[in-house]
Amino acid sequence: MVENTDVELSEAEAEQYDRQIRLWGLESQKRLRASKVLIIGLSGLGAETAKNIILSGVKSVCLLDNEKLKEIDLYSQFLAPPDKIGENRAEASLQRARALNPMVEVSSETRAVDNLPDEYFTTFDIVCATGLKQEQLERINNVCRDNNKKFLCGDVWGMFGYMFADLVDHEYSEEIVQHKAVKRGPDDNEKNARETVSITVKRRAIYVPLQNALSADWRKPELRSRLRRGDPSYFVLKILLRFRDEQNRNPDPAKRKSDTETLFRMRDELVKELSLPSGFISDELLTDVYGVVAGAAAVVGGVIGQEVVKAVSQREPPHNNMFFFNPVKCVGFVELYGQ
């Protein structure tokens, strides 16, 4: 999907990217270097994602945000300096984002996504969206899908976080390690005469759009059986997206008490709606969902960053299609929804 990968790396690039080339190979690095990335939403998660993608050495990153920098952003948004409160978050982040890696073109866009035409999103190879409402996410996802562009989205609320990926029809290569017997001299015995060789295989993954993943039918037995595994993170995401859609904002630390009550009420409604076991979604998971906690943003931003690298380099199996970080158990897992 990414073009212009035939140009050799400069000496400076080879030097700076030495370690990651040793991990994912020169071809991947060339593909990264040719790819254009759009990051929507410069909260703490957007900053973490931008950092990882810029460091990886892509061609360009555009930071899109129409919101102003607020004090609460500073809990995790390290790209925007504290003295820029009140300025546009994307613009305030530009200088530090560029300093991360001068070999990457970093630009900003301050228009709201609703004011941008569909064609805007198709000028990128991959779009990562955070902080949007479900409807906005679905629109951009569908535009990308129709134009065979990759789409990722994610969010962090307090310590909880998720990621969704729609890589449409994704081809990738995967390295598989095999053990091969070798014998060169009498010193070689059974044990040391084995050599690991890695072979590369081509694979393909088919994705579904976000609306399918978010409208999974929990009455179906195959999903019902998933409840037994006992992690309610999918439902926590549903509740938090619903809160954002209904209230037009995220849970507010200043209204911690009343917002927690609202969240509990929304939880109870969802439990009833989907006939979930009572107590399945613990209070604990809905109490640490305020602001963007730096550690959680680092964790989810790390996962999204790595998925962008995998997606554009077409190397190693990307997650299909939802990742959740459950901070109560400190578990991070991938599940497929909507297929």
Binding site: R19, E48, K51, G301, G302, G305
Partner: peptide, 8 residues
């Protein structure tokens, strides 16, 4: 080899 994402 060390990479940014795993470290993060």
């Amino acid at each position: 080899p060390a990479i940014a994402t795993a470290n993060a």
